[in-house]
Amino acid sequence: MSLTTLMEHDTKSSEIMAPSFALVKRVIWETDDTYTLLIDPPAENGGGFPFAPGQFNMVYAYGVGEAAISISSDPAKPDQLAHTIHRVGTVTSALSRLKRGDMIGLRGPFGTSWPIDEVVGKDVCIAAGGIGLAPLRPVIYSLLRRREKYGRIVILYGARSPLDLLYRVELEQWSKARNTDVIVTVDRGDSSWKGHIGVVTGLFSYVKLDSPSTVAMVCGPEVMMKYTCEELQRRGLRSDQIFVSLERNMKCGVGLCGHCQFGPHFICKDGPVFRLPVVNQLLEKKEI
């Protein structure tokens, strides 16, 4: 046999397919169907869980299965992990039944991260839709922690209704940071809602982006990202100033199972965060 391709190089072991177990410290219901699990990192990690903003874990519900869930906690606090999870199917429902003191399976962190170093000295526009705010929260924490290193920060966030808004208290706190705008909109409001109603792209009317020095990070449903990226470009950003986080079916998280392919890319290892020009053409086509 030819051993040339069988050298181990720097490859990592597929032992990673087995989860480590971690303690659920708290369950916070953000909305009717979305909850945040606060988790103590697995004991074998020595109390920490280093990750970069935008990375995800494969989160395991005992005997039921795994789902790829982005990490939504502060990277500067690796002793306290958070996952914000939308309850939609069997795995996320099983996870939703966990209580304080229960154990949860974790594998990770996997994938690429938001360009946190590239944006030093620049303006940052963060546009999130729905649960898409969760993968962006670690970026927001990081930016605000070293607020002086960045220019203006604009956070645009769209949700289905006022009751579907995530991290309401924090949104309020973030808006108080220096030179930081937080603008929230909902698709459906009622008379008790005094904020914006309309799609997230509509919020760009209320902010003036200094396009040459702005980097945008976008996460949400694919349609929302598509329109948001178009709007950003209409406002003068080049596509290489825009980053998106994509979602696909993931079974292994390490580029071996083939499920998350998006053209030549494996979303789990080449993504989930991509610079827009890398995926833009594929995003324009249907069912890639």
Partner: peptide
């Protein structure tokens, strides 16, 4: 914008 709202993109 109306079309996007109609899509109910954040819905489950």
């Amino acid at each position: 914008a109306t079309r996007l709202q109609l899509l109910d993109v954040y819905g489950s």
